[in-house]
């Protein structure tokens, strides 16, 4: 009975114009946002048309139909970048989220509040460092010399011989693991915030009841904490999955010529095509690559929205 009443949406009998006039104050407040969105989000979309043109920024664009797309789909570099974007982003997302959950659970187990706060502050800090600084720091830490902290440590332990240090950022099979570790260091702390908030919202009576029933620490975590976190974990994964195509800065500052095949993502591919071609760039081609990147990102958002509706009962957009 109640549900039926809720579903019944009242319909105004006034015209649209009159309603707008009636709520003019709200519309006036909304106006700056609308203008901002139109200028900075919608107007630039007109540039999408360049993907169907040859355009070097001087003469009028020359319509070439689907030529840019044909070229793009025939280039190995594009497909490598496309594959890398998805692989690196998704693996990074899973690892970072997993690490954030683990760290959150560990922090949650800390009894001394002061130490917990200090630990939280310390692990949040790397998030505020720019990627340029992070890359410089890790280039030193991972240096293939005895001055590199990791190699010196491995040498001390006897895993690496002096003079045969490992070039973590220069070897094709080690670049990605190194990249993921750096990402964990930088972003995991920040990622714990949302999980810590969820953990603090779990009713303590559940733990008390479980303790009375004889549950040990591990059992309390397994049967209370993790199930309580699950909805948040899925939400975080879904929300971040929609952003996987946006990878650029972290890769750009850490990649080098030796690992370009393992590290080149769509955004760095666009950058190379635009600025490193040694000639006036064809903005038509780079716009086409950008368009495909946006479309894939858009598709991911819609898929995530659909998954979210199925799992959580509400969408993300």
């Amino acid at each position: 009975m109640f549900r039926q009443k809720k579903d019944k949406v009242p319909v105004s009998t006034r015209s649209l114009g009159k309603r707008i006039y009636y709520y003019r104050g709200f519309y006036l407040m909304f106006l700056p946002v609308l203008i901002f969105a139109l200028i900075f989000y919608y107007a630039p979309m007109l540039g999408i048309r360049l993907s169907f043109y040859d355009y070097k920024g001087i003469k009028d664009p020359v319509f070439t139909g689907l030529k840019n797309f044909e070229k793009m789909f025939s280039m190995k570099g594009f497909w490598a970048a496309f594959k890398n974007t998805l692989e690196i982003s998704i693996i990074k997302l899973l690892i970072n989220t997993g690490a954030a959950v683990v760290i959150s659970l560990l922090l949650n187990e800390l009894i001394f509040l002061r130490f917990k706060k200090i630990a939280q502050t310390i692990i949040y800090l790397p998030h505020f460092m720019s990627w340029v600084v992070t890359a410089s720091v890790f280039t030193l830490i991972l240096s293939p010399t005895q001055e590199g902290l990791v190699n010196a440590f491995l040498t001390t332990l006897g895993f690496v011989e002096k003079g045969n240090e490992i070039y973590f950022l220069g070897l094709r099979n080690l670049w990605r693991p190194a990249y993921y570790v750096i990402n964990i260091w930088k972003e995991t702390g920040w990622g714990t915030i949302i999980f810590m908030a969820t953990l603090s919202g779990i009713n303590p009576e559940l733990y008390e009841a479980a303790s009375i029933d004889g549950a040990d620490r591990w059992q309390r975590m397994k049967f209370i904490t993790i199930p309580a976190l699950m909805n948040t974990i899925i939400t975080v994964l879904i929300l971040n999955l929609a952003k996987v195509m946006n990878l650029f800065e972290s890769v750009f500052v850490l990649q080098n010529h030796a690992v370009v095949r393992q590290s080149d993502v769509l955004a760095t591919y666009i950058y190379t095509q635009t600025f490193n071609s040694g000639a006036l760039p064809n903005y038509g081609y780079t716009t086409a690559v950008g368009l495909v990147r946006s479309l894939v990102g858009c598709a991911l958002v819609l898929i995530c929205n659909h998954i979210s509706k199925r799992i959580r009962g509400r969408g993300i957009v």
Binding site: N256, H257, A258, D264, T272, T274, S277, G278, N282
Partner: peptide, 23 residues
């Protein structure tokens, strides 16, 4: 042609130099 292909070409050349020398 330079605008069209030199970006990919340069990436490939640089990769080959790095592969030969460092790997």
């Amino acid at each position: 042609e330079m605008s069209q292909y030199n970006g990919d070409l340069t990436t490939l050349k640089n990769e080959i130099v790095a592969n030969v020398v460092t790997q």
